[in-house]
Amino acid sequence: MKFAILVSEGPYTHQATDTAFLFAQAVLAKGHEIFRVFFYHDGVYNATRLTTPPQDDRNIVKRWTKLAEENNLDMVVCVAAAQRRGIVDDGEMKRNGKDATNLAEPFRISGLGQLIEAGIQADRLVVFGD
């Protein structure tokens, strides 16, 4: 079965992103497919490579990156939400005249349409938020 996941909260403040991650892992472990993980609202903060938690804490951003790389996951950050909150990739940096980027690999920034497409293409869409 094809799953899609929507993450609506940032890391650390809310458990939502932890639950989403552990759910995603379980989906893959059961042999299902993940069509896309979409990050919206403060969820876009899951995608900043500048996150530096204490060493004895989980690194939520790296954990997503690792899961995505190992399973070839499509992780999409909503462009409008990202612009509001200062999550920037190369294209956004140039377009908006910023002096830096902070998007972690392999996240990509794209439109909200990607969430709707995920809803259309996947058999199940599960929302994690607060």
Partner: peptide
């Protein structure tokens, strides 16, 4: 902000003719 960003989802979903 949830209400506002929800409205953006509604408009996009409508644009996708859902």
């Amino acid at each position: 902000i949830y209400g506002w960003e929800a409205l953006e989802v509604v408009l996009i979903a409508a644009a996708f003719e859902q």
